[in-house]
Protein backbone atom coordinates (compact mmCIF):
# COMPACT_ATOMS: atom_id res chain seq x y z
CA UNK A 1 0.00 0.00 0.00
CA UNK A 2 2.83 2.37 0.91
CA UNK A 3 4.69 1.43 -2.26
CA UNK A 4 1.69 2.27 -4.38
CA UNK A 5 1.36 5.70 -2.81
CA UNK A 6 5.05 6.34 -3.33
CA UNK A 7 4.76 5.42 -6.99
CA UNK A 8 1.78 7.72 -7.41
CA UNK A 9 3.63 10.60 -5.74
CA UNK A 10 6.68 10.04 -7.91
CA UNK A 11 4.57 10.01 -11.06
CA UNK A 12 2.87 13.22 -10.01
CA UNK A 13 6.18 14.96 -9.37
CA UNK A 14 7.58 13.81 -12.69
CA UNK A 15 4.50 15.15 -14.46
CA UNK A 16 4.78 18.52 -12.72
CA UNK A 17 8.47 18.85 -13.50
CA UNK A 18 7.91 17.93 -17.15
CA UNK A 19 5.09 20.46 -17.49
CA UNK A 20 7.24 23.15 -15.91
CA UNK A 21 10.13 22.45 -18.20
CA UNK A 22 7.88 22.53 -21.25
CA UNK A 23 6.37 25.81 -20.10
CA UNK A 24 9.74 27.43 -19.64
CA UNK A 25 10.84 26.23 -23.06
CA UNK A 26 7.93 28.10 -24.75
CA UNK A 27 8.70 31.44 -23.12
CA UNK A 28 11.53 32.82 -25.24
CA UNK A 29 13.33 35.77 -23.77
CA UNK A 30 13.53 38.14 -26.74
CA UNK A 31 14.56 41.73 -27.16
CA UNK A 32 11.97 44.44 -27.49
CA UNK A 33 11.95 48.21 -27.32
CA UNK A 34 9.27 50.89 -27.41
CA UNK A 35 9.47 54.56 -28.32
CA UNK A 36 6.63 57.05 -27.79
CA UNK A 37 5.70 59.29 -30.69
CA UNK A 38 4.67 62.37 -28.72
CA UNK A 39 2.19 63.17 -31.45
CA UNK A 40 -0.23 65.06 -29.21
CA UNK A 41 -3.94 65.41 -29.84
CA UNK A 42 -5.74 66.20 -33.06
CA UNK A 43 -8.85 68.33 -32.60
CA UNK A 44 -11.59 69.08 -35.08
CA UNK A 45 -12.73 72.60 -35.73
CA UNK A 46 -16.16 74.00 -35.07
CA UNK A 47 -18.47 74.42 -38.04
CA UNK A 48 -20.05 77.66 -36.93
CA UNK A 49 -22.13 79.89 -39.16
CA UNK A 50 -23.99 82.69 -37.48
CA UNK A 51 -27.19 84.44 -38.51
CA UNK A 52 -27.36 87.87 -36.95
CA UNK A 53 -24.90 86.65 -34.32
CA UNK A 54 -26.74 83.42 -33.50
CA UNK A 55 -25.44 79.98 -34.54
CA UNK A 56 -27.61 78.82 -37.40
CA UNK A 57 -27.71 75.22 -36.19
CA UNK A 58 -29.51 76.36 -33.04
CA UNK A 59 -32.50 77.48 -35.06
CA UNK A 60 -33.63 80.05 -37.53
CA UNK A 61 -33.60 83.76 -37.08
CA UNK A 62 -36.80 85.79 -36.98
CA UNK A 63 -37.00 89.00 -38.96
CA UNK A 64 -39.80 91.20 -37.80
CA UNK A 65 -41.14 93.68 -40.32
CA UNK A 66 -43.62 96.11 -38.96
CA UNK A 67 -43.83 98.44 -41.95
CA UNK A 68 -46.85 98.25 -44.20
CA UNK A 69 -46.57 96.59 -47.58
CA UNK A 70 -48.32 98.31 -50.47
CA UNK A 71 -48.37 97.67 -54.21
CA UNK A 72 -46.01 100.54 -54.75
CA UNK A 73 -43.80 100.07 -51.70
CA UNK A 74 -41.92 96.79 -51.36
CA UNK A 75 -40.48 95.77 -48.04
CA UNK A 76 -36.87 94.95 -47.46
CA UNK A 77 -35.22 92.95 -44.72
CA UNK A 78 -31.71 91.64 -44.28
CA UNK A 79 -29.87 88.93 -42.44
CA UNK A 80 -26.20 89.00 -41.58
CA UNK A 81 -24.41 85.70 -42.20
CA UNK A 82 -20.94 85.17 -40.71
CA UNK A 83 -18.49 82.31 -41.13
CA UNK A 84 -17.25 82.08 -37.54
CA UNK A 85 -15.37 78.79 -37.75
CA UNK A 86 -12.18 78.32 -35.77
CA UNK A 87 -10.63 76.03 -38.39
CA UNK A 88 -6.89 76.01 -38.68
CA UNK A 89 -6.89 75.80 -42.46
CA UNK A 90 -8.69 78.01 -44.97
CA UNK A 91 -12.37 77.26 -44.63
CA UNK A 92 -14.88 78.72 -47.04
CA UNK A 93 -18.58 78.01 -47.04
CA UNK A 94 -21.18 78.48 -49.71
CA UNK A 95 -24.34 79.97 -48.29
CA UNK A 96 -27.53 79.63 -50.30
CA UNK A 97 -30.82 81.31 -49.56
CA UNK A 98 -33.47 79.21 -51.26
CA UNK A 99 -36.94 79.89 -52.53
CA UNK A 100 -39.40 81.30 -50.02
CA UNK A 101 -42.57 79.71 -48.84
CA UNK A 102 -45.52 81.80 -47.67
CA UNK A 103 -47.73 80.59 -44.89
CA UNK A 104 -49.52 81.67 -41.79
CA UNK A 105 -52.00 83.80 -43.69
CA UNK A 106 -55.76 83.73 -43.46
CA UNK A 107 -56.06 84.49 -47.13
CA UNK A 108 -54.59 82.35 -49.86
CA UNK A 109 -55.14 85.32 -52.14
CA UNK A 110 -52.45 87.22 -50.26
CA UNK A 111 -50.04 84.33 -50.64
CA UNK A 112 -50.80 84.18 -54.34
CA UNK A 113 -49.97 87.84 -54.81
CA UNK A 114 -46.86 88.03 -52.67
CA UNK A 115 -43.50 87.93 -54.36
CA UNK A 116 -40.52 87.12 -52.21
CA UNK A 117 -37.05 87.52 -53.63
CA UNK A 118 -33.57 87.38 -52.20
CA UNK A 119 -30.18 88.74 -53.05
CA UNK A 120 -26.74 89.24 -51.67
CA UNK A 121 -26.35 92.82 -50.55
CA UNK A 122 -24.08 94.95 -52.70
CA UNK A 123 -20.94 96.45 -51.28
CA UNK A 124 -22.90 99.52 -50.29
CA UNK A 125 -24.97 97.36 -47.99
CA UNK A 126 -28.19 98.91 -49.30
CA UNK A 127 -30.70 96.22 -50.11
CA UNK A 128 -32.64 98.52 -52.38
CA UNK A 129 -29.83 98.35 -54.88
CA UNK A 130 -29.39 94.57 -54.83
CA UNK A 131 -29.96 92.25 -57.76
CA UNK A 132 -32.91 90.20 -56.55
CA UNK A 133 -33.92 86.77 -57.74
CA UNK A 134 -35.73 83.64 -56.62
CA UNK A 135 -32.66 82.55 -54.67
CA UNK A 136 -29.24 83.90 -53.84
CA UNK A 137 -25.87 82.46 -52.90
CA UNK A 138 -22.40 83.57 -52.03
CA UNK A 139 -19.09 82.24 -50.75
CA UNK A 140 -17.93 83.35 -47.33
CA UNK A 141 -14.34 82.74 -46.25
CA UNK A 142 -13.24 82.05 -42.70
CA UNK A 143 -13.79 85.12 -40.58
CA UNK A 144 -15.80 86.94 -43.25
CA UNK A 145 -19.50 87.74 -43.45
CA UNK A 146 -22.14 88.64 -45.99
CA UNK A 147 -25.58 90.19 -45.91
CA UNK A 148 -28.55 88.62 -47.60
CA UNK A 149 -31.46 90.86 -48.55
CA UNK A 150 -35.13 89.99 -48.82
CA UNK A 151 -37.66 91.86 -50.84
CA UNK A 152 -41.37 91.31 -50.46
CA UNK A 153 -43.62 92.99 -52.98
CA UNK A 154 -47.17 93.12 -54.28
CA UNK A 155 -48.13 93.68 -57.90
CA UNK A 156 -49.42 97.07 -58.93
CA UNK A 157 -52.87 95.63 -59.52
CA UNK A 158 -53.16 93.88 -56.17
CA UNK A 159 -56.80 93.85 -55.02
CA UNK A 160 -57.87 96.03 -52.14
CA UNK A 161 -59.14 92.94 -50.32
CA UNK A 162 -55.56 92.21 -49.32
CA UNK A 163 -55.52 95.14 -46.97
CA UNK A 164 -54.82 94.40 -43.29
CA UNK A 165 -53.82 90.80 -43.94
CA UNK A 166 -50.57 89.32 -42.71
CA UNK A 167 -48.42 86.41 -43.72
CA UNK A 168 -45.44 84.48 -42.50
CA UNK A 169 -42.57 83.94 -44.90
CA UNK A 170 -39.97 81.24 -44.48
CA UNK A 171 -36.70 81.06 -46.38
CA UNK A 172 -34.29 78.14 -46.13
CA UNK A 173 -30.64 79.00 -45.64
CA UNK A 174 -27.96 76.38 -46.11
CA UNK A 175 -24.22 76.60 -45.55
CA UNK A 176 -21.91 74.04 -47.10
CA UNK A 177 -18.17 73.73 -46.71
CA UNK A 178 -16.36 74.15 -50.00
CA UNK A 179 -13.57 71.71 -50.78
CA UNK A 180 -10.23 73.43 -50.92
CA UNK A 181 -7.05 72.24 -52.47
CA UNK A 182 -3.61 72.87 -51.07
Amino acid sequence: MRTKKSLQLTALMLGAVSAGLLGVQGAWALWGVHAPSGAGTVRAADFRVELNGTPMDVGGVALQQEAALTPTTPLHASVHVANATDAGAPFTVEVVMGAASVGGTSSQVLADHLTVESAVAPSSGECAGADFGESASTHIAKGDAATFCLRVSLPDDAPATLQALSAGITLPLTATQLPLGP
Binding site: W31, G32, V33, H34, A35, P36, S37, G38, A39, G40, T41, V42, R43, A44, A45, D46, F47, T85, D86, A87, G88, A89, P90, F91, Q177, L180, G181, P182
Partner: peptide, 27 residues
Protein backbone atom coordinates in the same frame (compact mmCIF):
# COMPACT_ATOMS: atom_id res chain seq x y z
CA UNK B 1 18.22 46.03 -30.95
CA UNK B 2 17.15 49.59 -30.42
CA UNK B 3 14.61 52.15 -31.54
CA UNK B 4 14.96 55.86 -30.97
CA UNK B 5 12.44 58.51 -32.01
CA UNK B 6 13.25 62.14 -32.59
CA UNK B 7 10.68 64.92 -32.41
CA UNK B 8 8.06 64.66 -35.13
CA UNK B 9 6.38 67.37 -37.17
CA UNK B 10 2.71 67.76 -38.07
CA UNK B 11 1.83 69.25 -41.44
CA UNK B 12 -1.44 70.02 -43.18
CA UNK B 13 -2.19 69.66 -46.84
CA UNK B 14 -4.45 72.71 -46.66
CA UNK B 15 -2.38 74.93 -44.41
CA UNK B 16 0.57 74.24 -46.67
CA UNK B 17 3.25 73.51 -44.12
CA UNK B 18 4.08 72.71 -40.52
CA UNK B 19 1.41 73.30 -37.92
CA UNK B 20 1.31 73.42 -34.14
CA UNK B 21 -1.02 70.55 -33.32
CA UNK B 22 -1.73 72.02 -29.90
CA UNK B 23 -3.47 75.00 -31.48
CA UNK B 24 -4.60 73.57 -34.77
CA UNK B 25 -8.19 72.58 -35.60
CA UNK B 26 -8.76 70.16 -38.45
CA UNK B 27 -11.68 70.33 -40.87
Amino acid sequence: LNLEADAGVWTSDLAGGAIDIEDYLVV
